[in-house]
Simulated scan of single mutants.
Amino acid sequence: MSFLSPTLRLENLSTEPIMTQDHIPEDQRYNKQNIVAQWCVPINGKMYRIELEHGTTSGRRMIWVNGREVLRRDWMFKLVGEDTFHIDQIRCIIRVDPAPGFKYEYSLYIDGKSHDQYTEEMTRQYRLWLYTQDSAAETSQEYRIMLKLDTLSLYVNDELRTEESAFVHGGTDTKFLLQDTEFVLQARSSGNKHDGIVHTLLANGVAVPEAKIQEIMQEPVSILQAN
């Protein structure tokens, strides 16, 4: 005679761990307070915010890209190691290594390069401008404009633009309109081989300061919306 009710017989009990988060909607699983490391990475002209959740007591490891879950491991008894995931077909690895004082170090590798090496490489490959459009409404529009130098591909808030360039004296001008702001991307010869072509972005005739991609990549939340 069983003391278990018909719905609680041993053969009816689930063998799956009961501490998973599958039953919780994704937007509720994301908790900024649980993030232990974050990086900002431009890949193929688009900017991505990568965040790691490393639960040393729960054994849970989660990776978020722009606020979306891309990897989750529950009940990880080994708290160190590496996890692999892909962004736009680019292989990324997050490594968790032990550190003195019962702490951990977190490292990101993109396409086989450390985050620092990748940042240095991207600095040579891209030009970046940040522009905030003033508006009479309560909210203002922010634009992140990136130019990939080898292909001259132009991205605005991660979207590839197809704009025609016009030849002018000393170089080219690429004009595009965003709401009521006219942008002109100027390409001019610097006059020496070391500097090559100099790119300047104008918004309604006023030069937009170029952003330092090294600093921007260390401050992901300031330029990416938390989805």
Rank of each mutant, 00 (worst) to 15 (best):
I35E: 03
I110E: 02
D83G: 05
I93T: 14
V80S: 13
H54K: 05
I93R: 11
K46M: 02
T57G: 08
I35F: 02
I50K: 00
G45H: 00
V96E: 09
D74I: 10
T57H: 11
Y104N: 04
H86E: 12
Q89D: 14
Y48G: 00
Y104I: 01
L71M: 07
I63M: 01
T119W: 01
E105Q: 13
T56H: 13
I110V: 11
Q117T: 11
I94G: 04
H115W: 08
N31G: 09
Q38D: 04
C40K: 03
N34D: 09
Y48P: 00
Y30A: 12
H54A: 03
Y118E: 01
P98N: 07
I93A: 07
I94K: 05
Q38S: 05
R73Q: 09
H86S: 13
Q28W: 12
P98A: 09
V36N: 01
E69S: 09
G55E: 04
C40A: 09
E82F: 11
E105A: 13
K113Q: 09
E121C: 09
G101P: 02
S107M: 10
N44Y: 01
H115V: 07
E51F: 01
T84Q: 13
M62D: 10
D97T: 15
E26S: 12
I94T: 12
R61F: 09
M76A: 15
V70W: 00
V41D: 02
R91C: 10
Y30H: 11
H115E: 05
E120L: 08
Y118F: 06
L52A: 01
F85L: 04
W75S: 15
G45N: 01
R72A: 14
H54T: 01
R49S: 00
I93K: 09
G101W: 04
Y109M: 13
E105V: 08
Q33V: 14
I24Q: 07
G101E: 08
S107G: 13
I50T: 00
Y109P: 03
P25G: 12
M47L: 14
D74W: 06
R61D: 06
V65S: 06
Y30L: 10
C92L: 06
Y48T: 00
I35V: 09
S114N: 09
W64Y: 06
W64N: 05
W75C: 15
I87N: 03
W75H: 15
E82I: 05
R60L: 11
C92I: 04
D83W: 08
D111V: 06
H86P: 02
T119D: 02
S107W: 08
R95I: 07
I110L: 03
I24R: 07
D97Y: 14
Q28T: 11
T56K: 15
G45L: 05
Q89Y: 10
R72T: 13
E26I: 10
M76L: 15
E69V: 04
T57M: 12
I94D: 02
V80W: 13
Y106M: 00
Q38M: 02
R61V: 11
K78R: 15
N66S: 08
Y106F: 02
R72N: 13
E53P: 04
P25R: 12
K78S: 13
V80M: 14
